[in-house]
């Protein structure tokens, strides 16, 4: 033996096994989480309702009363503002929301509907 320290011993495999397990566990965290899209409905900045989109059994309308009344339609897999007493109707024109990151806002009524969840589209914000 030229050296007191052999290059490799069988027990070294233990270290490599440990490294593989750690790396594997870490990469698992990177996978998209199963977090299903959730619709969050807020009025005046306060959360009114939070519902998992896929778990809505049948169409349901939600009427938010206030100075300006807003009607929200919750359907399996999607949500939309279908009526608002506001003058601009921007929220109604926004259409149907289906994916995380999307939102419909009624400024005059201070009502917002948005979908949160694992953001597959990779969009962080919106301008316009």
């Amino acid at each position: 033996m030229s050296s007191r320290f052999p290059l490799f011993r069988k027990r070294d495999l233990l270290i490599f096994l440990l490294a593989a397990v750690l790396a594997g566990a870490g990469f698992l965290q990177w996978l998209p989480k199963s977090g299903a899209p959730v619709a969050v409905i807020e009025q005046d900045g306060k959360e009114i309702r939070r519902v998992e989109l896929s778990s809505i059994p049948q169409p349901e309308t939600l009427v938010l009363d206030g100075e300006i009344s807003v009607t929200i339609l919750l359907e399996p897999g999607q949500v939309s503002i279908i009526h608002s007493d506001c003058p601009d109707q921007i929220c109604v024109n926004t259409g149907t929301l289906t994916r995380p990151g999307q939102s419909a806002v009624c400024l005059p009524a201070r009502v917002s509907v948005r979908i949160v969840g694992e953001n597959n589209s990779g969009i962080d914000g919106m301008t316009g």
Binding site: T94, L97, D124, G125, M126, G128
Partner: peptide
């Protein structure tokens, strides 16, 4: 929209520009 610093994954911030024509998002 204003962005600061880094996202956890280190990629650039992605900002969607609204389509003036479409109601879809």
């Amino acid at each position: 929209v204003g962005v600061y610093g880094e996202k956890p994954d280190g990629t650039d911030w992605r900002i969607s520009v609204r389509d003036p024509d479409e109601d879809t998002q």
